[in-house]
Design a protein around this nucleic acid. Structure first.
Lengths: 239, 239
DNA sequence: ACCTGAACACCGTTCAAGT
DNA sequence: ACCTGAACACCGTTCAAGT
């Protein structure tokens, strides 16, 4: 009987998967992916490194749980009544911003795409494709295209953030890449030369959205005749 | 004088960055990313681990060189006279197949996108967008969309390959994911449920191409009026 | 100039021992 | 049932010492 109440009144500092994941996210956000070690985690939780293994299978399991935590927060609260294309843009931007705030999420998403976070993204986007009038046989290819694009950007941003952590600022990084591209043989890399000029000034978030709009334009263009409704979503948004 | 000829007649087993990269690729292909250690590399090259550091800055440098090696082979030999859309598909498929054959390339490409391999892909695809009539202000966003999509798929494939290495076969993996998706609450994940059925039967390569076609359809759809030529590349290819 | 290999400062993970 | 922390089997990287 007393056991019962004791368990209910469990001290808040008792170890649990939730508290471990929470601490892991804090370390990842504060100090980056390389700072998350079982020793650092144990120190922050004031326990032994072995204790963590009682609640978590291994480091991959821990990272998967942390990633799912962040993604779940983003994907769920999107207005259900919104126009499908707008809703897809909102979801995609949500994932983009989440990775901007937690770059390690980008790394995880591209390394372990089958984890719990993935169905969340699939559902959030896929449901809207359906509403858009995309025929069922094209569903899978269409979500897949959008999600793979999002994951590609996620990986890039995470990689850039890794450099930022090493001291390089965003401008310095873009400048260095632009300079490297400008140094390539113009005869063999004419296109890269032209694009290099646009690189330092471009806005990551705007370019991300432009890509989403491009894919949505493709989805709309391949819609069965007579189903097309609303704008084609290809307008370059400037806000 | 004798030094001169001696250097020219250097034994083929002398250490060099090329030989190190070659050995690294062999280890990566034969035994996967986790098998590439400086100790294993030193053993294969019959030298000390420290010797490798004379020719290579660190492990990242080594992986970047190995990746560039593989990508360079793929991207260069694409027919220059081909129709732009067909050429883009060829380049994309080349990268896809390279990652299929060397999954570790996918990991690297998504982790270090600014490396030497990236301008190669940008040029190969961007040049064709130009030929397609895409206006200059849309170049950057368009290549970026295509390349990010390719990188997204690259990451996925690499992740899947990591599982394959751990013993799980492709069918078993797809089956497990499909089963996991089918177990989700149908009320909250209706779309995922429907798509789960298509998952085990789908062809990765075809789906990849479908995504490329979707983006190309979007590029075509947003082309200035009067510029559109040829097919819109949106045909769902079944072979 | 280039190579050797022991040593350093770490990791993730395990496990006997405790409560 | 849960926690402790030393120990194990690794890593990437460095560096004095060799040739």
């Amino acid at each position: 009987m007393t056991n019962r109440t004791q368990r209910a009144e469990r001290r808040t500092d008792a170890l649990s998967k939730e508290r471990i994941v929470e601490a892991a996210i804090a370390i990842l956000d504060e100090s980056g992916e390389s700072a998350l070690t079982f020793r650092a985690l144990a120190a922050r939780l004031a326990t032994g490194s072995g204790a963590i293994y009682w609640h978590v299978a291994n480091k991959d399991d821990l990272l998967a749980a942390a990633t799912d935590d962040v993604v779940a927060r983003v994907v769920t609260d999107v207005d259900d009544g919104a126009e499908p294309r707008a809703a897809i843009r909102t979801v995609a931007l949500g994932v983009f911003d989440a990775i901007d705030a937690h770059p390690w999420v980008g790394t995880q998403l591209t390394r372990a795409p089958w984890l719990a976070a993935m169905p969340r993204i699939f559902e959030a986007i896929g449901g809207r494709l359906q509403a858009l009038g995309v025929p069922e046989r094209a569903w899978f290819d269409s979500v897949s295209a959008l999600v793979n694009y999002i994951l590609g950007v996620a990986g890039q941003n995470a990689a850039n953030a890794r450099l930022h952590a090493h001291g390089t600022g965003r401008e310095a990084l873009l400048g260095a890449v632009a300079a490297q591209w400008a140094r390539l043989d113009p005869a063999r890399y004419p296109f890269v030369h032209r694009v290099a000029e646009q690189l330092p000034a471009h806005d990551d978030r705007e370019q991300f959205l432009a890509g989403i709009d491009l894919i949505l334009a493709g989805v709309t263009a391949t819609l069965p005749a007579g189903t097309r409704t609303g704008s084609d979503g290809s307008r370059a948004s400037r806000s």
